[in-house]
Structure formats: C-alpha cells, structure tokens
Design a protein around this nucleic acid. Sequence first.
DNA 1: TTGACGATAGTCT
DNA 2: GACTATCGTCAAC
Length: 202
Amino acid sequence: MGKKIRPDFYLEQNVETIAKQLLGKKLCTHIDGVLTSGFITECEAYGGINDKACHANNGRRTPRTEVFFKKGGIGYVYICYGVHHMFNIITNHKNIGDAVLIRSIEPVDGVNAMLQRRGLVSLHPSITKGPGNVCQAMGITMEHNGISLQSNTLWIEENTLIPLHEIVITTRIGMGKAAEDDGLLLRRYYINKNKYVRGKLS
DNA sequence: TTGACGATAGTCT
DNA sequence: GACTATCGTCAAC
C-alpha cells in the first residue's frame, strides 16, 4: 500500500495544475472487501465558473451539484445517460465548483475483480478505458458521492510524477451541444502512448 | 480502422 | 418533454 495524497493537494486553486499532477497517481477503492486500484492515465479539468460544460457553471446549483461546491478532496459521482457512472474529484476551496473527471486508468490491483464487475473474461484495455468503464471496474456508484478521499473506501495514492513531455493536452470530447465554445478548451490530459486512453489502439 | 447511432433513466425547464 | 461529462455494436471503407 502506498501513501494517500495529503488533503491540501486538492485545495490547489488551479484545477488544470491538479489535473496534470493527478496523471500517474494511483486511484484505489476498497469495496465489498475487494481492493482494486489503477494508475490514472486520462482525465479532464472542469472549472466551475468560466466553463459552460461544467454542471456547476453559472452558479447552476441544484441538489445534484451540491457536492460540487464543497471543499476539495472529496469524490463526486454522477450518472450519465441513465446508465454510466462518472467519477470526479472535487478541487479548490468551498463554493468554487472545480473538479477533475477521471476518464481512464491502467489496472494494477484486483484485476480479477474488475473483470468480474465488467463481465469480461480476458484482460482488454477497454476494461478501464472511458469514465463509465472506470467506475464499473472500480465498483464506484452513487453511494460514494461526496465521500472523502481520506477514507479507507476510496482514495488516491502518491506516485512518481509524470514528466510534462509525456503529457498530451487536447480538447475535451463527448460533450454535444452543451460544450459549444467551451468544449473546445484544452482541458483533457492523458499520458502519451498509453494503451488505456480513449482513441486508437483497441 | 473509422464513423454513425440507439439504449436508457435521472435531472432540469 | 428535452437534455445528457457514454458505451457497444454495426456498417462502410
């Protein structure tokens, strides 16, 4: 077991900085007695204020987005298209509304449990590629909405920093009309040449 | 290998 | 009633 990231890491005010630093870190869950973990290979930054594509934009504060405005260092889980769970990390101080969406991870521990949850028999990159798949493989559900990342159920561990030259920055994807202008912001980050990133290589 | 499209249900207008 | 931070499948190239 590694060491949990310290709480003040999540209070950094620049969400893009956090997103870059989260790459390569180890996301862990301990659910139903099973430990699963994986390195973060792809994520996206969401700014609460100047970002139309963010749920919390424009002070769009509803019961669903309530956790968004809490102090950084907790998880925000959301169901998309009625079927897919998405896992976000809330950052910055309270009432801001910044978050980082975890899009893909590279499996480390509990691979068999992940396969089982995903209903697969053999290891294939799609097991943890894409935000919906990450949550399914890790066992993350609405139960974990608002959970502290210092808990023993869901947390992130320190790991070596990914060198900047291996980080690719590009536009966000998968946001239809809502994104319009802001969907083109360069706020998606991934580790170059990693198999567990949406795109080519299947 | 790439692109289009439907499923599906919670949330907001 | 419309929209959605997706996935998997299928068809065309």
